[in-house]
Amino acid sequence: MDPIIFLLLTSSFRFLFVFAAQSPATSSRISVFGVVYCDVCSTNTFSKQSYFLPGVEVHIECKFKAISPKSNEQMNLSVNRTTGEDGVYKLDVRSVDGVNCSDGPAIVSFCQASLIGSPSSPTCNVPLIKTASNKISVKSKQGNLCTLSLDALTYRPYKINTTLCGI
């Protein structure tokens, strides 16, 4: 093999290995999610009469701290999401420099979701729990994934069906 081609190939491979070793090792993926459901009997719990609400707009606001010995950086996110058919809304933050799930205390300093839209259900459209904050934070050592589950947001019917709810 020609020495110049050999030198170019080995240089290219070395560049790829250095690039691959530096990329996701210092950053995390963050996933924030929650649900919106209809609390048919206004019991503040998900009962057998309850059901998930698709198509509801939710505003998510989060602040993340970067772990860095030289600075006290913070990233603020404010987005709107719509619940899917299963009543789930989700925010995925792909790669965050300086945020490492396996190091130190929780990296989320604040995260909350608020109802901003009405559900498409005409029978369940009175907001009951309008704002939810972080509840469970799970850190995965594989893939450096941080998952944050928020409390449920709920609507209730304008008038409770006393027969259905046993009241």
Results as ranks from 00 to 15, higher is better:
L53N: 07
G55K: 03
E57S: 12
V58C: 07
V58D: 10
V58H: 04
I60T: 08
E61A: 07
C62M: 10
K63W: 01
F64S: 00
F64C: 01
A66L: 08
I67K: 05
I67R: 01
S68V: 00
S68L: 03
P69Y: 05
K70Y: 13
S71E: 15
S71G: 08
S71N: 15
N72F: 13
N72H: 12
N72A: 14
E73W: 03
Q74V: 14
Q74Y: 02
Q74A: 06
M75R: 02
N76Q: 10
N76C: 05
N76L: 11
S78I: 06
V79K: 14
R81N: 06
T82I: 14
T82Q: 14
G84P: 08
E85R: 13
D86G: 11
D86A: 13
G87V: 02
V88A: 07
Y89N: 04
K90C: 08
L91C: 11
V93R: 06
R94T: 14
R94H: 13
S95H: 12
S95D: 12
V96H: 00
V96T: 06
D97S: 01
G98H: 01
G98E: 00
V99A: 08
N100C: 00
N100M: 04
C101T: 10
C101K: 01
S102Q: 10
S102K: 09
S102A: 13
S102L: 13
I107R: 03
I107N: 06
S109F: 00
F110S: 06
F110G: 01
F110Y: 10
C111E: 03
Q112N: 07
S114K: 15
I116S: 09
I116Y: 12
G117Y: 10
S118C: 09
S120E: 05
S120Q: 08
S120P: 00
S120M: 02
P122Y: 10
C124Y: 14
C124R: 07
N125D: 15
N125M: 13
P127E: 10
P127Y: 05
P127L: 11
L128P: 05
I129G: 01
I129H: 08
I129D: 04
K130G: 09
K130E: 15
K130A: 15
T131C: 04
A132L: 02
S133T: 07
N134I: 04
I136R: 10
S137G: 02
K139H: 10
K139T: 12
K141T: 14
Q142P: 02
G143Y: 10
G143F: 14
N144C: 09
L145R: 15
L145Q: 14
L145M: 13
L145Y: 06
C146Y: 00
S149R: 11
L150T: 00
L150C: 00
L150V: 03
L153N: 03
Y155Q: 07
Y155I: 12
